[in-house]
Design a protein around this nucleic acid. Sequence first.
DNA 1: ATGAAAGCGCTAACAT
DNA 2: ATGTTAGCGCTTTCAT
Lengths: 318, 318
Amino acid sequence: VSTGTASKALSGGGQLRPSTRQRVLAAAEELGFHPSPVARALLSGRTYTVGLLTSDSLGRFSIPLLLGAEDSLATGEIAILLCDARADPIREQYYIRTLLARQVDGFIVTGHRSDPRPSITASLPVPVVYAYTPSDNPDDLSVVPDDVQGGRLAGQHLIALGRRRIAYVGGPERYAASHLRLRGLRQALEPAEVDVVGDPLFGEWQETWGRQAGQVLLRSTPDIDAVFCASDQIARGVCDTLRDHSVGIPDDIAVVGFDNWDEMVLASRPPLTSVDMRLRLVGEVAANHLLQAIAGRPQSGLQPVDCGLVVRESSVRS
Amino acid sequence: VSTGTASKALSGGGQLRPSTRQRVLAAAEELGFHPSPVARALLSGRTYTVGLLTSDSLGRFSIPLLLGAEDSLATGEIAILLCDARADPIREQYYIRTLLARQVDGFIVTGHRSDPRPSITASLPVPVVYAYTPSDNPDDLSVVPDDVQGGRLAGQHLIALGRRRIAYVGGPERYAASHLRLRGLRQALEPAEVDVVGDPLFGEWQETWGRQAGQVLLRSTPDIDAVFCASDQIARGVCDTLRDHSVGIPDDIAVVGFDNWDEMVLASRPPLTSVDMRLRLVGEVAANHLLQAIAGRPQSGLQPVDCGLVVRESSVRS
DNA sequence: ATGAAAGCGCTAACAT
DNA sequence: ATGTTAGCGCTTTCAT
């Protein structure tokens, strides 16, 4: 029962008499013995740990993503070291160094926007996967929600409901997501040979903007029968304005939001139909890709994850 | 320039000629050398890592807490291993074992409620600090927002504004926070020799409950001049109902919420005055206590952190 | 089939 | 003041 033999027994390797292996296993069980990951890491160079680097403070979007990643990684007995760089490049560099010094096996990089961020892959000796916020280098692997497809889902839903005069209210113009979701909407309207009514509106992501946008819509294009909004907050703001003007939702105008943010969609009057980015799935997919890359099978490119649509009373009367 | 000498130079210990120390430091700088935390951990038993265990899925409350903890820990060069047990005791046990095997120096335990949770301290060989969600063992160290003081803040604010007919709308009756915030409110009303008007209402944390509660208030105690709500969502719901009935806020009725949840307080009409639990500070304090405990100076007991009050237009006309 | 020994990167004690 | 050595807990040769 030497240490070497025990090691073989526990790892399942080597040439051992079955009875010996059994005895060792039994003893280990009894003593509650677990091989030290630290010592193992020293020897193998692998720590079974990945760094999760969020460039911009962990927000609402990061959480499901993180949980999804954790689900996938925990299966592989891999733990997550969490680092939030607070949108500070200096801090980010510091964290990267720290994580590398700790010998993480890989990185998941995320942020709070869907616009590309600078790649850090080149300077790292371990695999990196970008999740939600893609890398600006197309050769890196980035797992992102498919904003265009999400917009298409919303459009197809409205078309299927027979709506033909559809307006669009985006978030800030400088966000790619504002444009991609609009593009998807237009793709869905094409087969019905209609286009978005009036000019797409751009503003903020918040409710106050949604309320303003509602005013604009009522003034400039009062004959619409549907609005697709780039966030649930905007959609809720639009609903509030329509409601204040006694416009029926969904009878007169159907409203579809984006994010499927629980507290928002449920509190809205009426509850919002919304596109769900399935961020948890994004996290899982990203983690699985990272595991693959760590195992020597890296992939690259932009990997879009399909959005889902959750139908509620703002588009379909219950 | 042997390894032993280099070690002394870098650690600042031992007896070295200053010139040698300089040379070593310069060389280390040039080679970008960093001592391996893994090897160091093997030797010292300390990993400079703590486990952050969230019993119930990381929610809105956990994030500022986590960031605060990270701030404090990063200063001490300590990294956070994140584990979310998803309210599953089996999973929690699994994570605890994993973290212990990884030789974390301590634990921060948190959750999504302010009600006590089962202690895990006894079974662990390393220090544990509970944050936000306290331990059910008073001998453990738990850092929590002071709900009573938060309620008092709200009450004092309303009293200072000259309000005397104040109603209370709580969350679910089974949550301690619903009662503690009420107690604080009452403490603040005492010096003015008034009590809460009507029966305190209990329901849910969500807006829909706030809207219902608003109806109840208008029916049963229409002569109130203020309402304190145990969450921003409730407060916003109350505002919506009052608004629907053309009640002036704050002129007729002042409204104060709890949580200071950005998206909620700002989107509300009017924006909400709200009690802030300073969760970031809770995280920082918890982390500092953990560092102290790791350094051999443990504390114990319930450590309340004061709430703050953020005044907006729902209580004071701008 | 098992045991002995070397070494992963580091530090602390000891020897020079 | 510097170099040498042993050992943290494990795995992997290599010898038995």
